[in-house]
Design a protein around this nucleic acid. Structure first.
Lengths: 202, 202
DNA sequence: CAAAATATTCTAGAACC
DNA sequence: GGTTCTAGAATATTTTG
């Protein structure tokens, strides 16, 4: 009841814990990375390193899912595989084919796998848009910005982005206000209905 | 009884948030829904209604992607199809097979498709302050402004101001959020106290 | 044609195991 | 840490006023 509402909506507050993220080099690569690297040494037509050896291509997602995945993982879902790739920071670098890249994932460089770590962000009270804003703020205060701000092109770009962001923030505020009104409306309706119920009970 | 009260009230809250924007009865179903419904009338072995006709099953994702999807959509990605299903509120109801369900998506009930609408915000009471479109953005990107901004100095100044403004907007959002939490807390407390009163009256 | 709605893509959140 | 399901976010693309 009332309590459940609170839990549902404020539950995330309980998880408010400071994160001591430690991206120190691990001694052994994550199993997922090893398996993915190994699977590329099969020299199959289903999946392989790309021409430059700095990314890999799943040439046939269907066969890859049905034949390759279950031999290395506990599933045969392409989407689960992709979810893992994203978790480890791989990017899809072609819109034409299933080609994924990570700076530290290269042909013949098995030793570099230890430098790839899982992305992990703590659950936070703040909505994602605020997170990204805060990150940006942190950046703007650094000296990095001092250097790049001298470039006219970058300035223009930043200007454009800032305006875009302003628009977004304005819309969010609009939404907030609307929601507040609706919450109030809901509250008042609830009070009415409860009073009617109480009357009937008398 | 408590639970029913809750459902009633949060149901109405959900209606509030959507009633302002769009969910009036449409005359014609979303293209995606029509296509998905049509594709199920092929009586194929790749995809079909389930036994009860209240959900559908993609029996062979690989063939579905390669053969079925491109005939109805502009792509052959299973994941894009699933993204659409989720956007329209379908749920995957089996862990064993690709079976998706929506209350208003049933065999022989094409007319019910008009009642399915695209999700804009969560059914949750809580914000997801995210975007529906509001229309107070006229003042932002005029081309006039673009020209003036070609001056380097002015650009710098404008960016500085934009950042200042951004900070202000972010603070406003924080305030809104706090207020919303208080409102909800109030609502929840009120519900509790009213229920206690009702119990005593019994 | 501009703006809104819908579609497609890529990535991430969160629950559960 | 892995797997699953769903959503966020950025673009494309289409539709509509």
């Amino acid at each position: 009841m009332g309590e459940n509402v609170m839990e549902l909506n404020f539950g995330s507050l309980a998880n408010f814990s400071s994160s001591s993220s430690s991206p120190k080099p691990l001694r052994c690569p994550a199993p997922f990375l090893l398996k993915t690297y190994d699977l590329l040494e099969e020299h199959s037509e289903i999946v392989s390193w790309n021409e430059q050896g700095n990314a890999f291509v799943v040439w046939s997602p269907a066969e890859f899912s049905e034949l390759t995945l279950p031999r290395y993982f506990k599933h045969n879902n392409f989407s689960s595989f992709i979810r893992q790739l994203n978790t480890y920071g791989f990017k899809k670098i072609s819109s034409k084919r299933w080609e994924f890249q990570h700076e530290k994932f290269q042909k013949g460089c098995k030793h570099m796998l230890v430098e790839i770590s899982r992305k992990k962000c703590e659950p936070s009270v703040f909505p994602s848009y605020l997170k990204s804003c805060s990150e940006e703020n942190a950046m703007t205060n650094s000296s990095v910005e001092e250097n790049i701000s001298n470039n006219h092109e970058l300035l223009m770009e930043e200007n454009k982005n800032l305006k875009k962001e302003r628009l977004k923030l304005q819309m969010q505020i609009e939404e907030c206000k609307t929601l507040e009104m609706k919450l109030l409306e809901c509250l008042s309706q609830y009070m009415d209905s409860q009073q009617n119920k109480a009357r009937r009970l008398c």
